[in-house]
Computed example of a mutant assay.
Amino acid sequence: MEKRTEKLTKLLDELNLDALFLTDLYNLRYFAGFTGTTGVGLATRKGNFFYSDFRYRSQAEAQVTKMGFEFVEVSRGSLKFVGEHAEKLGLKKIGFEDHNVTFSSYQTLKEVFKAELVPIGDKITYVRMIKSDEEIGFIKKAIEISDVAFSEALKIIKEGVSEKEIAGYMEYIQRKLGAEDRSFETILASGVRSAMPHGVASDKKIQKEEFITMDFGAYYNGYVSDMTRTVYYGNNITEKHKEIYNLVLEAQILGINTIKEGIMSDDVDKVVRNFLTEKGYGKEFGHGLGHGIGLEIHELPYLSSVTHIELKENMVVTSEPGLYFDGWGGVRIEDDVVVKKDGREVLNKSNKELIIIEAK
C-alpha cells in the first residue's frame, strides 16, 4: 500500500493549517490504513498520529504504522487526550471534517482543542478522486465478483421467486467469491416496482412479462463495485419494452463514450440528458448520470448538474442513465468506467444487450 502522508502534508500547506483532525472512517482507511470502527487521526508536520483504545491495539498498530502514522492508545472516547497532545505539539490551526461532524461533536471539539478550528469541506475527498493502479486493481476485482453474481442470478430467476431471494443469492455468491460485504443494500425491482430507482428487494414474487432491474455491488479489500442490469422475464415482450430498453442502452453507451480526461463532470450528464430529452423522455430521467466510486459507493466527482469537476486520468465513475414510468416499469443500465488520458476503459464485462429469460 502506498504511503499517503505526503498528500496530507500538501493539504496542510494548501490550506495553511498546522494539522488535520481526521474522523471520517473512509478517510482514516485511505490515509492511515485503519479498517476498524473506532479511532481518530491527527496529521501534522511533526508527525501523524492515530488514536484508538486497547481493543484495536494490535490491529491498528499493524495497519497504521506502515502508512506513516504512530499508534497512540487512549481510553475509549478520550478526545481530551488528543486535545492535550495537540496543545503540546503547539498546533494553532486545526482543520476538521465538517461534513462528518455533528453539532454536538463540534461543541466537544471546541472544548477539547485550544486552537482555531477550520472546516475543510470536500478538500480531503478531492484527494481520493484520482485512484492509484492498486486501487483500480481492487475495484476491478470487486467488479469481477459482481459480474459472476449477475450471471449466477440469471439461473434462478423464475415465476414465484421473490426479489429478496434473488438479492440474497447474489450477495451470497459475492461473499463466496471473496467479497467482504455488499457495497450497498441490493436494489432488485421487478414489474411496476422497476419504476422505483431505489426499489430495494421486497417480498414481491417475480411474474411473467416484466422487467427486473438489479443494481448491486461488492466490497473487495475496502473498494466497491456498482453495476446495474435490467432483464426481461417472459415470452411475449412488447415493442415498448424493447424500445425503452434500447434507448437506455444507447444513452448509457453515449455516456461512456463522452467520458474522457479534460471534460467537465456536469457536461457528461448534459450530453446524455439532451439526448434523452430530444427523444421525448427528459422528464423520465430524473437522477444524475453517474458518480465516482472507490472506498465509498458514492464519492466525487458526480456526473450531474450539481458538480463541476474536470475529469482526470484514473478517476473511476459510473454511467447509469434510467427511464422510469410509474405503473409500468423502468430500465437502468450501469457500468464502472476508468477515465484514461485518451478516453476510457469500461470495467464491467457482463452483457448489456437485452436479455430475455423465457418463462417455462
Rank of each mutant, 00 (worst) to 15 (best):
T277F: 07
E152W: 14
V339D: 10
R45D: 02
L295E: 08
A179E: 12
K7W: 07
L15S: 10
D18W: 13
R193Y: 01
N27M: 10
E345N: 03
I355M: 04
I145S: 14
M315A: 05
D122P: 12
G199D: 14
G36V: 15
F21I: 05
F325P: 09
S265R: 12
L249W: 09
I143E: 10
K140H: 11
S350Y: 01
K283R: 06
L12S: 01
T108I: 08
V74T: 11
K92N: 03
T213N: 12
G255F: 08
A167C: 03
L89V: 05
E313A: 14
R273T: 15
H198T: 01
F49S: 08
S194P: 12
A189P: 05
K349V: 10
E310C: 01
M227G: 00
A201G: 06
K340C: 08
D181Q: 06
I244S: 12
L28F: 06
E144I: 10
N274V: 10
V127K: 02
F216D: 10
R45S: 14
Q174C: 08
P321H: 12
D335F: 08
S151C: 04
G68Q: 00
D147E: 03
I206V: 15
E6L: 03
S265E: 06
V248N: 07
D326W: 05
Y220S: 04
L89N: 06
L249A: 13
D203F: 13
I173Y: 02
V338P: 07
K88G: 13
A189G: 03
K158W: 08
E144W: 04
N274I: 04
K240D: 15
I124C: 15
T230D: 11
N235I: 01
V192D: 04
I293S: 10
F285R: 11
L347V: 11
V317L: 07
Y219T: 01
L91E: 12
D133E: 15
T37C: 11
E87V: 15
V306S: 07
D181N: 14
M1Q: 12
F81W: 03
T65S: 15
I253W: 05
G282Y: 10
P119D: 02
E159H: 05
A359P: 05
I297Q: 08
E144Y: 02
F216L: 03
V192L: 07
F54V: 15
Q252L: 06
P321A: 07
D147M: 00
Q207K: 03
L11H: 11
F34G: 14
P321Y: 06
I263L: 14
F211D: 00
G168D: 06
F50E: 12
E6T: 13
E320L: 00
G286T: 04
L249Y: 04
Y245W: 09
E73K: 05
L354C: 09
K242E: 02
E313N: 10
E334C: 14
G36A: 13
K208I: 02
D181I: 05
E261R: 11
L25Y: 11
V271S: 14
K140S: 09
S202V: 07
K10H: 13
Y30C: 09
G83M: 12
M227E: 02
D203M: 11
E353G: 14
I333M: 01
